[in-house]
């Protein structure tokens, strides 16, 4: 059963029983090799809402959740939401084979030696963090989530609305600069 995720902006935010408002420390920087996107840095996504999702291909709930995460990514193309999926502790070949069968449009990062999951103090798979535009965790889910759930999408909409306009322009400019690079 997937967890429903509810985000209500403001001080009176209320969440489903499965979802915890993140009250811990900010998370450390994150730099990892990825399957098809080279080396990925979390800092590159500053100014956007970021969904950081820890998973493994052997984890049955993770496999089911990955399909809904991809549907979310497709629905949210053009939104200011980045999705970073982090495979934990598996050999590249196994992850690559999985995504050949289950293509994903978002970067799939490789935490080969489990260094990031340890630094982020993630205890179980799947787990997801939703970060604000300053890359500070806002919400945390330590189980699978139905990313098709309307309440989840409302929550993401609310978060995206709060993104600072200046940061959004910075991101737009970075992306434009990136697109101008010779290929």
């Amino acid at each position: 059963m997937a967890a429903a995720l509810l985000l209500v902006s403001g001080a009176t935010a209320a969440f489903s029983a499965e979802l915890a408002r993140w009250t811990g420390e900010p998370k450390p920087p994150l730099h990892l090799e990825s399957l098809y996107h080279g080396r990925v840095s979390l800092d590159d996504h500053k100014g956007r809402a970021v969904l950081v999702h820890f998973f493994a291909t052997w984890c049955e709930p993770c496999v089911e959740e990955m399909a809904s995460l991809e549907r979310l990514a497709v629905r949210r193309q053009g939104d200011e939401l980045s999705i970073l999926a982090i495979d934990v502790g598996e050999v590249d070949a196994r992850v690559r084979n999985f995504f050949k069968r289950n293509p994903a449009s978002f970067p799939v990062l490789l935490d080969r030696d489990r260094a990031v999951i340890k630094a982020w103090q993630v205890k179980a798979l799947p787990s997801s963090f939703i970060l604000d535009s300053n890359l500070v965790p806002v919400l945390f889910v330590e189980r699978d989530v139905d990313w098709d759930d309307p309440s989840v999408n409302s929550a993401l909409d609310e978060l995206i609305k709060t993104l600072p306009r200046d940061d959004r322009r910075d991101v737009d400019k970075r992306e434009a600069d990136e697109n101008d690079k010779p290929t």
Partner: peptide
Amino acid sequence: TLGCGTGDVASLLLSGN
């Protein structure tokens, strides 16, 4: 389950599966 599994006890327990 592939091979003999991974031995990720925390994920096993927390998933309830």
